[in-house]
Design a protein around this nucleic acid. Structure first.
Lengths: 246, 246
DNA sequence: TCACTCATGTTAGAGCATGTAACGAACACT
DNA sequence: AGTGTTCGTTACATGCTCTAACATGAGTGA
């Protein structure tokens, strides 16, 4: 199995792997997640069924590759939102939050696959691509919160008054991440991040439709709340919204 | 098709329909959502495949029936949590929130099916079972918020300072529900409800695992936050947690 | 009572999915 | 040139949803 292989072969193999992944993604966008079948991908590429298995061990691995690609893109989009705007963390954090949602709303099918999927057992492993990606986004925002804290600390609650179980978990997270933030600040950060993230997931699952037809201002309000918790002003949302397939 | 039919026949038909639904649910619990296949249900009942189609138009309708049953149970659980405790809305609201999560955590597979499913297209229709159920839960909590407001109004923001789009949606929701709450209070209520609900959905989707191993105190903290917004004390969580299949 | 109707079951099969097995042809490396 | 790997094929096993066609038996009405 691909022991050494000439460079020629290896690159050819990679190229086909990529083409399969791109084809799967195209099908995902055109016809939803269940259209991403091994057969359908092969059919579209002019191959016949089992050929795909030379490149991916099975359907799950193929879907996993698409998911990994999307996670990378989403991460890049957030980083770009961070780096585009002005240099102050107080402005960057809301920009990143908006970048996150802009990506999500311009690619609804993909976002749903990432965050509102059946969650194939494979992707629920402790060290799965998915968990790693979640931690990564998390860290992007955490770094920014650290910068904000260094510049101008925000008010924090007294952790000694918190539930012991909760405090233990916050301490564990603080330790694991090796952050410069004090645990009480980490607690605030997690609250903020969870609210934003949760709202997005709900939107992706159409769980906000019972009350809201357009979640955008709801998300903006959440950004404002969170900004208030962090002691910063949210700033206005950029005027023009991002369209699909920018 | 079941035009008139004697009562005997009709009841027999209903009984079989129920048995099919129960069997599907058993399979769901034992082996996950994708085990709820028409074939598997028939096999377990000693029937052969197509017999099921005499009772359900197809796989989607069968799953929809299971979902409807679960929604009804969840609603009943919340109502019971409401009616069990003391009579004050200030105590009932947290009790209902805890009842909601108790149901969710004691039936993880079922809860995932309800709120974290692939969302079969059928269930995304404006008047689907799912939307109706969402509105129903929503109303259960809304009624309680009304009682709380009548007893002791909670502080509300000035809606005139809110985003016009958000305000319009809150007004529309207020009108649609015909609630006695003023729009600004509805806005607070929706914020509270969205936070609780969002946290639960995230837990169901394992989206909290990046930071928390045990979401229970996180949820309790959220209840406390929300209670603060409503000007009430959350009270302590009941000591013993509810086990599965109580 | 007898024949009719219709609900309910059956088997057969179409169509699509994942995935394996067995085989052939192109390719690279010695 | 020979040899083994890679990459494609077809054939097939199995499972799923769902339709078609047929059998059976219980209730219904003349």
């Amino acid at each position: 199995m691909e022991r050494t292989g000439s460079d020629r072969r290896r690159r050819q193999h990679e190229a086909t792997r990529d083409e399969i992944r791109r084809t799967a993604r195209a099908l995902l966008i055109e016809a939803g997640p269940q259209a991403m079948s091994v057969s359908a991908v092969a059919r579209r590429m002019g191959l016949s069924g089992p050929a795909i298995y030379r490149y991916y061990a099975g359907h799950d691995e193929l879907v996993g590759a698409v998911i990994a690609e999307l996670f990378a893109e989403l991460g890049a989009a957030i980083e770009q939102a961070r780096d585009d705007g002005p240099a102050s963390p107080a402005e960057r954090l809301p920009a990143m939050a908006r970048g996150l949602r802009a990506w999500a709303t311009s690619r609804p099918v993909e976002f749903r696959l990432l965050f509102a999927a059946p969650i194939a057992e494979a992707n629920r492993a402790p060290e799965s691509e998915r968990q790693r990606a979640g931690e990564h986004f998390d860290e992007l925002f955490l770094r920014e919160a650290e910068a904000l804290w260094a510049e101008r600390p925000f008010p924090v609650p007294d952790l000694r008054e918190a539930d012991p179980g909760l405090r233990a978990q916050v301490l564990a997270y603080t330790e694991r991440k090796g952050t410069s933030l004090p645990p009480a600040a980490v607690q605030v950060f997690l609250t903020c991040w969870t609210r934003l993230y949760g709202l997005l997931v709900m939107e992706a699952l159409d769980q906000l439709a019972f009350a809201y037809t357009d979640p955008e201002p709801v998300y903006e309000a959440c950004i404002a709340e969170v900004a208030a918790l962090l002691g910063i002003a949210a700033g206005a949302a950029p005027a023009g919204d991002v369209g699909r397939r920018s």
